[in-house]
Write a protein that binds this DNA or RNA. Structure first.
Lengths: 118, 118
DNA sequence: TTTGAAAATAACTGATAAGTTATATAAATT
DNA sequence: AATTTATATAACTTATCAGTTATTTTCAAA
């Protein structure tokens, strides 16, 4: 799945995540999206292209303006993949619960603290 | 959140996703993880460091071996952020449903096909 | 039909990242 | 003690990427 590379890579940049957060509020043109950033217009255009290629946004042409909005494809691809990790983590979690359940009561509390591996 | 950068960036590489998929089956040492790849051991070590920094895996030391397993932190950070996007997309989806509901019956079917923005 | 605004593209620069080989450290084995 | 195995680190190369400025395309408005 080459799309996964693009989708995750797109989200690894804070500027692009901010753009998506803005689009979560509704459609916006390139200029509107560029406004809050200390960055040139071409830079934002490139970010948008990255997001579009990753299937995270779509654009429509409305005269000279090109309003962008969120798209599903990228998210769906990531979610499908992440689901695998989520269930694996849940399984480990359950296994740990089983181990803890089999332990003498006193030692449980102390051990439980170390559960969310940091 | 600087961790988000690291987590999404870590998942953007197919080798690292494969490593995580392997770890979803259970703990594995560095050598075990390196085995399926046509890649040197130092390369895999670097990938593991990236995954560890991103909070996606943890390692324990067991003599000369360093078994790795999945960790929660990275996933949680991503999930928290993705939740925002998910709800925004769902909102757009609902809005579209409302628009479609207000349309004459015949034109609905044709329009619905274009729903998953591509 | 010229002017101006919205957006994209091209060519460049500097930083980062993935891979390499060579070497170091540290524990297990003989 | 010497060797082998498991892993990490260092130094380097090449490619990719985020940003820039300069230029181009496309539409709107005068």
């Amino acid at each position: 799945m080459p799309n996964l590379d693009a989708a995750f890579s797109a989200l690894s940049d804070p500027t692009r995540r901010a753009i998506l957060a803005r689009l979560a509020l509704g459609e916006a043109t390139v200029m509107q999206l560029a406004e809050p950033f200390e960055m040139t217009q071409p830079a934002v255009s490139k970010h948008l292209k990255v997001l579009e290629t990753a299937g995270l946004i779509v654009r429509r042409v409305e005269g000279a303006k090109h309003p962008c909005r969120l798209a599903n494809d990228g998210m769906e691809a990531m979610d499908r993949w992440l689901e695998m990790l989520r269930t694996a983590l849940a399984k480990n979690y359950d296994r740990l619960d089983a181990v803890l359940a089999a332990m003498p009561k006193e030692s449980k509390a102390a051990k439980k603290k170390g559960r969310k591996t940091r």
